[in-house]
Amino acid sequence: MHIIKLNAIDSTNSYLKELSSKQAVENFTVVWAENQTNGRGQRGSNWEVESGKNLTFSVLIKDVLQNFEEVFNLNVIVAVSIFQTLTELKIPEISIKWANDILSEKKKICGVLIENQFKSSSEILSVIGIGINVNQENFINLPQASSIKNITHKDWSKDEILIAFLKKFQININRYKNEGSEYFWEVYHENLFKINIPSAFEDKNGDKFMGIIRKVLSNGLLQIELEDDSLQLFDIKEVKMLY
């Protein structure tokens, strides 16, 4: 595993994608930035962090996914790996919020953005961007965000968390290659935030409704049971949970 540590950069995902387009890059190459000035999250949002306080890094993965149908499996493996890492570090009440946010005590402490490139050789190259709020204490206008420090009331070593995750992730990638995805989907669903609990949602038109998360499909769509007992599928940009 090759780790490239940078002081400041616009986006670790962009840096790693550009690097891989210019030269051969070793599998599991990691780009870690102390300050990311233009980090990106799901739904096209920016990922704002205080310099030096948090973990912002990207990991390049290749020779893992074999076809387009497997793409969301990687989201599940990443989310489960972060969940397991933070649980083993005894961060309390960790859960996975669809699609792959990580919560502690119902507050978001980690976000993931995976960008896949489909090569002409049929190879799928994935750049996994991960932001973990570690020692940041103030989240202005972000009432649903928190950090590991705010949750545990102590400072944490970013190096310790990064190395723990990378070890867990490599183990899980090897397990996936040897055994498939079933185990990871089980862990994902067992720890999915608000699964089987009546919850409030808002659709892309701003309309609010009640529903119950029943499962996430292999393509990443969220299955919600509505009040009339019908089942409806939503993409990540089509619905958000209100909590």
Rank of each mutant, 00 (worst) to 15 (best):
M1L: 13
H2E: 15
I3W: 08
I4P: 01
K5D: 06
L6G: 05
N7W: 02
N7I: 00
S11N: 07
S11R: 06
S14T: 14
Y15D: 13
K17L: 15
E18G: 11
E18I: 07
L19K: 13
S20I: 05
S20D: 05
A24C: 11
V25S: 00
F28D: 11
T29W: 07
A33S: 02
E34W: 10
N35G: 01
T37Y: 00
G39M: 00
R40K: 15
G41M: 14
N46M: 09
E48L: 09
E50S: 02
E50L: 00
F57K: 02
L60S: 02
L60K: 03
E69A: 14
N75G: 06
V76E: 08
I77S: 03
V78Q: 05
S81E: 11
I82R: 14
T85Y: 12
L86T: 03
E88F: 03
E88G: 00
L89F: 13
I91A: 04
I91R: 05
P92Y: 01
E93S: 10
I96L: 03
W98N: 09
N100D: 12
D101K: 02
D101I: 01
D101R: 04
S104Q: 09
K106V: 03
K106M: 05
K108R: 14
I109F: 06
L113K: 06
E115M: 05
N116I: 04
F118H: 12
S121E: 07
I124A: 14
L125P: 13
L125G: 08
L125W: 15
S126V: 02
G129S: 05
G131L: 05
N133W: 11
Q136G: 02
Q136A: 01
Q136R: 02
F139Y: 06
N141Y: 08
Q144C: 04
Q144Y: 10
A145T: 01
S146G: 00
S147E: 08
S147P: 08
S147C: 08
K149S: 13
N150H: 12
T152Q: 10
D159W: 01
F165P: 01
L166Y: 08
I171F: 15
N174E: 14
R175T: 12
R175M: 08
Y176W: 08
F184S: 03
E186W: 04
V187M: 07
V187R: 07
E190R: 13
F193M: 11
I195E: 06
P198A: 08
S199F: 05
S199A: 14
K204E: 15
K204D: 15
D207N: 11
K208P: 11
F209G: 11
F209K: 11
M210G: 14
I212A: 09
V216E: 02
S218N: 14
L221Y: 10
L226V: 13
L226R: 07
E227F: 09
D235I: 05
D235E: 10
E238Y: 01
V239M: 08
V239F: 01
K240E: 13
Y243A: 11
